[in-house]
C-alpha cells in the first residue's frame, strides 16, 4: 500500500478502516442494504403478479396447470438444500476448516447447476410447444394437448373447444420474467461462489477473516427465499 501512514492491523484490513470489526460491520450492513434493494427489485414483479392475478384469475388458474409442479418441487428441494450447504460453508470457514469450506461451496454450486438444468428443460419445452409471452404465445402440437388438459383441470369442466383465457399470454409474460430474473440471480450466484472457492483454495480466508464467504451465503439465501415465493405462486396456487 502506498500509504504514508504507519499501518497497524492484519493484512486483510483495508487502510480506511480502523479495526477488523468495523470492516466486518460495514460489509454486513452493506450486504443487508443490498438485499433490501434486491427485494424491492423483485417486489415490482410480485405486485404485477398480484394485480394481473386479481384481474385475470382464469388465466392464472389455467397457467398454473400448464407448469410442471414436479419440476418446480424438485428445484425447491435442490435450492433449499443448497442454502443449507451454503450455511455450512460459512460455519466451516469460521472454524478455519478450509477443505470443508470448499467442499460445501462446491456442493452448493452443483445444486445451483442442477437447478439451472431443470429450468433449462422447462424453458425449452415451453418454447417448443409455443407457450410463450405476449404476441409470441402460439401453442401448437403437444402444447395444445397440454392446454386442453390444463383448461379441463382448472375448470373441471366439459370438453375443451379450443378456447382458453386470452390473458394466458400475460401469465407467461410474468412467468418468464420472474423465473428468468431469478435464474439470472442463480447464474450470478454460481459465478460468485466459484470465485469464493478459488479464493478459499488460495487461502484467502481464515478463522478471523471470512467476510466474503459470509456475504455470499447471505446473497444465496435471498435467491433461495425468492424461489420459495415463486414456486407456490406460479406452480401451485390455481
Amino acid at each position: 500500500m502506498a500509504d504514508a501512514h504507519a499501518h497497524h492491523g492484519p493484512d486483510y484490513l483495508e487502510h480506511h478502516f480502523e479495526t477488523p470489526l468495523q470492516q466486518f460491520d460495514a460489509a454486513k450492513l452493506g450486504m443487508w442494504i443490498f438485499l433490501a434493494q434486491e427485494i424491492l427489485f423483485f417486489s415490482g414483479l410480485f405486485v404485477a403478479y398480484f394485480i394481473f392475478r386479481s384481474w385475470y384469475p382464469e388465466a392464472f388458474s389455467v397457467g398454473s396447470h400448464l407448469l410442471d409442479w414436479k419440476m418446480g418441487a424438485i428445484n425447491t428441494v435442490v435450492l433449499l438444500f443448497s442454502s443449507f450447504t451454503a450455511a455450512m460453508a460459512v460455519r466451516s470457514s469460521q472454524l478455519g476448516e478450509t477443505k470443508k469450506t470448499t467442499a460445501f461451496l462446491a456442493v452448493t454450486v452443483v445444486c445451483a447447476l442442477g437447478f439451472m438444468v431443470v429450468k433449462y428443460f422447462e424453458y425449452t419445452h415451453k418454447i417448443h410447444v409455443g407457450l410463450l409471452p405476449g404476441s409470441l404465445f402460439n401453442p401448437q402440437g403437444e402444447g395444445v394437448e397440454e392446454l386442453r388438459a390444463a383448461v379441463e383441470a382448472a375448470y373441471a369442466s366439459g370438453p375443451f373447444e379450443g378456447t382458453y383465457p386470452y390473458h394466458l399470454r400475460s401469465f407467461f409474460g410474468i412467468y418468464f420474467v420472474m423465473t428468468g430474473l431469478h435464474g439470472l440471480h442463480v447464474l450470478i450466484g454460481i459465478g460468485v461462489i466459484l470465485w469464493m472457492i478459488v479464493r478459499n483454495q488460495k487461502g484467502a480466508f481464515t478463522k478471523d477473516y471470512n467476510t466474503p464467504v459470509d456475504m455470499t451465503a447471505l446473497y444465496w439465501h435471498l435467491v433461495d427465499l425468492i424461489w420459495i415465493y415463486l414456486f407456490p405462486l406460479l406452480y401451485l396456487i390455481d
Partner: peptide, 11 residues
C-alpha cells in the same frame, strides 16, 4: 418479447 404487461393491445 411483447410480454403483455403494459400494452393494452396485448392484454
Amino acid at each position: 418479447l411483447t410480454i403483455g404487461i403494459f400494452d393494452p393491445a396485448l392484454g
